[in-house]
Amino acid sequence: MSILSKLGETLVCLKAGRVTLPYPAEAKPLPEKFRGRPIFDATKCIGCAGCANNCPAREILVYDVCQEIRILKYLGRHCAYCGRCADVCPEKAITMSQEFENGTNQIGDIQQRLELFMSTCQRCGRCFKEPSVLEQLKMKGYRFDDLENERWIFRSQATLKGEPAVDDLKIELD
């Protein structure tokens, strides 16, 4: 309670210096393994839906709109940035970026939607990715479907009808 203790306090305060980070001017460097928003690379993605199966928040939706086009949708609403999708991706198409400044007034802004061109399975009629490069050419516009006559068949315009299997698909995000 003496004046000496006050002087001591002042010394301690002066020794500590300034601690406030100059955030808006310059950002503090992020730690190396910081996981921010996942970024999906459509050119590498093969549409295997491994990320959708491994997502604990069930945030990645994969569904087919017709026999050739598969849609992969990342909603980003309740993503926990755990990075499991990036771990499990066989083509390394998902990278955990260092973007964290995602404040927005519309929740749909963090959405990512990939439209992937796929081949059609002869047996079940669902989409799959051709394994070889030569076969992947078939996905660019036409496919070798009619095996009896060995003819190219042009891509269909038909869309699959029916209720989506996941309830979240009904959420309309602007």
């Binding site: 808006p24 503090k28 400044e101 995602n102 404040g103 802004d109 959405q111």
Partner: peptide
């Protein structure tokens, strides 16, 4: 920092960085 950034977006000090990404073949 992200929280401060979000409040700054609301105050109109900065622009938002995010935008919806859609890839089409």
């Amino acid at each position: 920092e992200a929280i401060i950034y979000g409040v700054a977006v609301a105050l109109g000090l900065v622009d938002k960085k995010t935008a919806p990404v859609a890839f089409k073949e």
